[in-house]
Design a protein around this nucleic acid. Structure first.
Length: 272
DNA sequence: TTGTGTTTTATTGCCTCC
DNA sequence: GGAGGCAATAAAACACAA
């Protein structure tokens, strides 16, 4: 905290023409003084020159001023300074204050508030990013569900066709020759979905994995529908499809890959 | 002009670090 | 224990619709 910064408490301190002024001491303790309002009725122009503003005597002589906005030039310089470094070392604070004609305390406060504003904006940006990622994920999920339905109905109709053909073929066979019942020999004809995942995998027929409606092993090729969230924009090498680790590889990549971590990823507070 | 919502400046209290 | 950071908050300044 800066010392010697006057504050004005209008709520509790006005007595006729007298104002109570608080003086913030380094330790935070306040000493009070009274100023005759008529003696100190000189008003500083809204925007003073930096030289005037930095003049200690000027401050000492003045009424406690109302809150005053910084000039656009002052703000511009502060913004530029903030861009280079968002924290303020004492030396830079003093230099800036001198340059801007402000109290060092004002510069410090400005940086403090500016950091708070930046943080709020960053939160908003993170929220937007998270939301758009979620929306994309949702739309991918929807399209996968549609594909799944489509493939399922294709399989059903093809199975029906196959069964019909087999029956036809049976009827055309030499009378007396025994033809095994297909649906007794191979469950795939009766219910293709009934094949266990391990069977499919061992026989190499992974393509029918979508058939097993109730089987959680449907997702065996993925660790999870919701791998740890790292937005795709930070991904350098989008080969997640190839290694079968991300169902929604065009949205997320697994956080297990350290090379995907960037400062702007969700949950990180990276200063500009 | 006035009421109201937003932004900016400043204060306070608490916390951490050295 | 002092310095500095942050969150919460107050209050002045500002913007703007009615």
């Amino acid at each position: 905290m800066e010392s010697n910064s006057f504050y004005f408490d209008p709520s509790a301190s006005q007595h006729g023409n007298m104002f109570f002024l608080g003086n913030l001491n380094p330790g935070g303790a306040r000493s009070m003084m009274m100023i005759n309002i008529e003696e100190t009725s000189k008003r500083r122009p809204f925007f003073s020159s930096p030289e005037d503003l930095y003049d200690e005597e000027y401050y000492d002589d003045q009424l406690p001023e109302k809150k005053r906005r910084l000039t656009s030039e002052q703000v511009h310089l502060l913004e530029k300074s903030f861009e280079t470094e968002n924290k303020l070392e004492p030396e830079r604070k003093t230099q800036l204050a001198k340059k801007l004609g402000l109290q060092p305390r004002q510069v410090a406060v400005w940086f403090q508030n500016r950091r708070a504003r930046w943080k709020t904006k960053q939160l908003e940006r993170d929220y937007d990013l998270l939301k758009s990622t979620y929306d994309q994920l949702l739309s991918n999920y929807d399209s996968i569900v549609k594909d799944n339905d489509k493939l399922r109905s294709e399989v059903t109709s093809l199975t029906e066709k196959l069964l019909g053909n087999e029956e036809e073929a049976n009827n055309e066979l030499t009378p007396g020759r025994q033809v095994p019942e297909l649906n007794q020999l191979d469950p795939v004809y009766l219910n293709p979905a009934a094949i266990k995942t391990e069977d499919r995998l061992s026989s190499g027929s992974v393509g029918s994995a979508v058939l097993d409606e109730d089987a959680p092993q449907l997702l065996d090729s993925c660790d999870s529908y919701f791998p740890s969230l790292v937005p795709i924009h930070s991904q350098q090498d989008n080969n997640a499809c190839d290694n079968d680790r991300a169902c929604f590889s065009d949205v997320f990549v697994p956080t297990t890959s350290p090379s995907h971590h960037h400062g702007e990823s969700l949950g990180f507070w990276a200063w500009p």
